[in-house]
Design a binder for these strands. Structure first.
Lengths: 146, 146
DNA sequence: GACATTTCCTTGAGTGCTCAAGTTTATGGC
DNA sequence: GCCATAAACTTGAGCACTCAAGGAAATGTC
């Protein structure tokens, strides 16, 4: 097998393992999945803590349909609210609530801790983690810092 | 955000983009998903081109349930057959058929090509692809060459 | 100012996975 | 030999995503 195919298949496996770890920690402590956390994190980074659903889809690499379905339970538990746009009646913003911001802060601590464990020394050198991130950015998608 | 969390989130995004590309190519040319191809590839690597379902699950990072469901359509289209074990009536091997081996060979060419495009020069240096693979191996799961 | 087109979003149907529970067969202790 | 336990597998229910279709509102054209 070529190095390229090997790397591609390893990427798939590594992601599955990583998602399982994050889901277990975030789910156990806060009742959310990694996908939920990622969505909330993006909202938290946006100006005014709110985004159009279509932009959220783009940022997360989902379809608009996926965003609609992902937001539903987050709205139900009060972390996100739906806000209409005064100028354009087609758009509905997704906006973090006060509760959402507070809960996100806690989730973020858990996520940082989980990521820290995953990439802990001595297995991982100081410079290797940003190196991995840089290589992954070239593979595709938009990074969380973009 | 820490480097570690950034890398973790980028990994998720990169995988989604990669899977989409492989699914499009493999689906278009051979009617299978990347998950299907990975399963067939593992079978093709196994001695006698066959494996117990439980070992297949372990190798793929799926549950036994997931393997049952993944094999069903592959059996239906004749790429894989079910073989009982003479010694232990509980186990059912999944075995590549002759057609399966032939089709796998074609799929593999497509997959190699897709991976080659994805990690093509000049964006990717000669040594960077194995480096990425090595870093990913440390993240988790079992690699395709393990 | 009516009409086609585009944009934003939702919904129905389908897919591919999970977990929990159940069936069947093998194994070990006595 | 019997029974409890364990192992291999399947099945039902549920979840998270996709695509395709459709509704409603904005935009461009004439």
């Amino acid at each position: 097998m070529s190095d390229a195919l090997d790397a591609a298949l390893r990427l798939v496996r590594a992601q599955a393992a990583l998602v399982r770890r994050f889901d277990a920690r975030l789910g156990g402590l806060h009742g959310v999945s990694l996908a939920d956390f990622t969505l909330l994190l993006r909202l938290g980074q946006a100006p005014g803590n709110r985004m159009r659903r279509v932009d959220l889809a783009e940022a997360l690499g989902l379809t608009a349909s996926g965003v609609t379905r992902a937001l539903a339970p987050l709205e139900r538990i009060g972390l996100v609210t739906r806000e209409p746009d005064a100028r354009d009646a087609r758009v509905a913003y997704a906006s973090l609530t006060g509760t959402g911001r507070a809960r996100l802060k806690e989730m973020r601590a858990t996520a940082e801790e989980t990521a820290g464990d995953l990439f802990a020394a001595p297995a991982w050198g100081e410079e290797e983690v940003p190196l991995l991130a840089a290589l992954l950015t070239r593979v595709g998608g938009t990074g969380p810092r973009a």
